[in-house]
Design a protein around this nucleic acid. Structure first.
Length: 576
RNA sequence: GGUGGGGUAGCUCAGCUGGUUAGAGCGCAGGACUCAUAAUCCUGAGGUCGAGAGUUCAAGUCUCUCUCCCACUACCA
């Protein structure tokens, strides 16, 4: 039923930063929709490669490691595994979950830099940075604090004063000190860095973004155009750190004057999409070039990126500058889906302030299916979306427990009771069957369209409407009434009902894979028949062979009680 | 300050290039049914589409002004 030819699709979700298990906002805005999309496309028969990785470089990783009393490398190993486990708990179907610290990404990053410099897009410049003698390191803007030169606020950060809001340069702070150690023993040093000359790419980037106005969400193009309209600035792509990708010269040795410097995370992080694909190829024997090299088949690949809105500039401007500037046949993104934030009782989720619910805690209080359904049904697509426990409870109880779970339960248990748990034969087509067939003929293509367009809220609403139509069908067909006088006609209602259960299980797979599997297993549907190859509603309603043994699965979705959400509100400070 | 997004039924949101009585889900009220996780199905109440002005035969949908909320503002990611 899909109107697309089978395709090769590369899916990436923005790389989660290494310094902690991600919160539900991160999950909802990149990894989860990428996973739901990947699953749906696989079911439609496309060849999908879903790549993600931990983003491991940068100052916060070093500081978090120090706080944890571990070496940066050990810390990253530990947190990578924790994030990998959290992803598995939420059933994220990565084909490969890599690391930006891998050898492949290091090498690619260095190669990109050399190509860019060859083509004139990289230039070495001198800048002034605050150096903390006590900490033995240069301090990024935000880690320098001091008195605001504008309003005399004493705890202004190096990039912006929280009191008067003025944007600052850390070297202008009065009485600066290190936010890391509190030491005032800091000085301004001159240091050399490589700059990516994005300004010279503006024209090509603008044309490219313009060409996607029709097929990218407004959120994506508007953010990109905003930067272009303000004028792209050249950005330093190296930092005075030790943890990261070393800067090499053309001879393969550390570039002169760049000892103790590495590439900035936002230069190498997107390159890790490629590096992780190479690592996937190494692990599986797959062909990474078919996804990334336009001279090796990647022109036939559709590349779809998922990310929160904070990442749009990097994915529409910085990374494309890297790709285009290299003058090598690298694949550019085709579809870019950006999300707003899930907000938490009036504010943002915050990793540093531990506000909100984190993936490891969430899985502790409710099954992954519950979160997956709720976060997708309320995806922050057009604006920020508020998370509340009350909405969570209402969504799960109504949509999953009452509409889907109860439907599966009522018809399967009735079949077991009255028709010995086998798909029964008999009965004639009535208005009820005609109605549900027409309903499905209208809704199934619509659902496919929503998935292809990555309209998640609408896809979820359509899925729910299809489940609800099953309940309406049963009300119309009323097999329990026919059973008293005409067992054959009751059989018709039960048989169509069971076929609907199977169909609902098939449709549920991208969103709630655990429950979907329970349903399909109970209906004895073989793996190969679980794909999305709809041949019209008529076929869907006659898919199960007569006599097939089915069972009534145990309760699929336990309801969330008000006591539960009160306890969660207490535990997570929901009213905060 | 600048830029972007948003302000549509009690709540969460749909409403493409302007065009019949503004839609959905939840919640609420009434009814039906009894196979089912007191589930389900039907019906209904409820909105001056943030405020004001303008363009138009016609505006939630375009223009301007005002107002409120949120995000971003590049070297933390």
């Amino acid at each position: 039923m899909s109107n697309m030819k089978p395709n090769r699709i590369l899916v990436t979700s923005a790389l989660p930063y290494i310094n902690g298990v991600k919160h539900m906002g991160n999950l909802a805005g990149s990894m989860l929709p990428a996973d739901v999309y990947s699953r749906a496309m696989r079911l439609m028969g496309h060849e999908v490669l879903y790549i993600c990785a931990t983003d491991e470089h940068g100052t916060p990783a070093e500081l978090a490691a120090a706080e944890a009393g571990l070496s940066v490398s050990d810390y990253c190993d530990k947190m990578h595994n924790a994030q990998k486990a959290a992803g598995a708990d939420f059933k994220l179907s990565y084909d490969y979950f890599g690391r930006s610290s891998s050898d492949a990404t290091h090498r690619l990053t260095q190669d990109f830099a050399l190509d860019l410099e060859t083509n004139g897009f990289i230039e070495e410049r001198t800048s002034q940075q605050v150096y903390s003698i006590a900490d033995g390191r240069y301090l990024p803007d935000r880690y320098v604090e001091g008195t605001c030169p504008n309003c005399d606020f004493e705890a202004a950060r190096g990039d912006q004063c929280d009191n008067c809001g003025k944007l600052l340069d850390p070297i202008d702070l009065i009485n600066p000190y290190s936010a890391v150690s509190g030491s005032h023993d800091v000085e301004i040093r001159e240091t050399n860095h490589l700059y990516l000359k994005q300004s010279e790419m503006s024209g090509r980037l603008r044309d490219w973004v313009e060409s996607h106005r029709a097929d990218w969400p407004a959120l994506t193009t508007s953010i990109a155009m905003k930067w272009l309209d303000e004028g792209l600035r050249d950005r330093a792509i190296t930092r005075d750190l030790t943890w990261g990708v070393p800067v090499l010269g053309a001879d393969g040795n550390v570039r002169e004057g760049f000892e103790g410097k590495v590439f900035y995370v936002w230069f190498d992080a997107p390159i890790a999409y490629i590096g992780a694909t190479q690592d996937w190829a190494k692990a599986t024997g797959g062909d990474w070039e078919a996804y990334w090299r336009t001279d090796k088949g990647a022109n036939d690949t559709r590349y779809v990126q998922f990310m929160g809105k904070d990442n749009v500039a990097f994915h529409t401007l910085s990374f494309p500058t890297t790709i285009l500037g290299s003058a090598q046949p690298w694949k550019l993104v085709d579809e870019l889906k950006a999300f707003n934030w899930v907000t938490w009782y009036g504010g943002k989720f915050s990793t540093s302030q531990k506000r909100g619910v984190f993936m490891d805690q969430a899985i502790d209080i409710a099954p992954s299916d519950y979160w997956r359904w709720h976060l997708m049904a309320n995806a922050p697509e057009s604006s920020d979306a508020a998370f509340t426990w009350e909405d969570f409870q209402a969504n799960i109880n109504s949509d999953l427990a009452n509409v889907l779970g109860n439907f599966v339960n009522r018809i399967t248990s009735y079949c077991v009771k009255k028709f010995v748990g086998a798909v029964p034969d008999g009965g004639i087509i009535t208005d009820a069957e005609k109605w549900i067939e027409a309903e499905l003929d209208m809704r199934l293509p619509q659902l496919v369209k929503y998935y292809e367009a990555r309209e998640f809220r609408k896809a979820m609403a359509e899925t729910r409407a299809i489940w609800a139509a099953g309940n309406e069908y049963l009300t119309q067909a009323a097999p329990w009434t026919h059973y008293k006088t005409d067992v054959d006609q009751a059989a018709m209602g039960v048989r169509v009902g069971l076929n609907l259960v199977a169909l609902f299980g098939v449709l549920a797979q991208p969103i709630i894979p655990d429950a979907a599997k329970k349903i399909l297993d109970a209906m004895n549907i073989p793996e190969e028949n679980r794909t999305w190859t709809f041949r019209g509603a008529g076929a869907c309603l006659n898919a199960l062979p007569i006599g097939l043994n089915i069972s009534a699965p145990p309760v699929l979705f336990t309801k969330i009680e008000t006591d539960d959400i009160e306890a969660w509100t207490e535990r997570f400070g929901g009213e905060g």
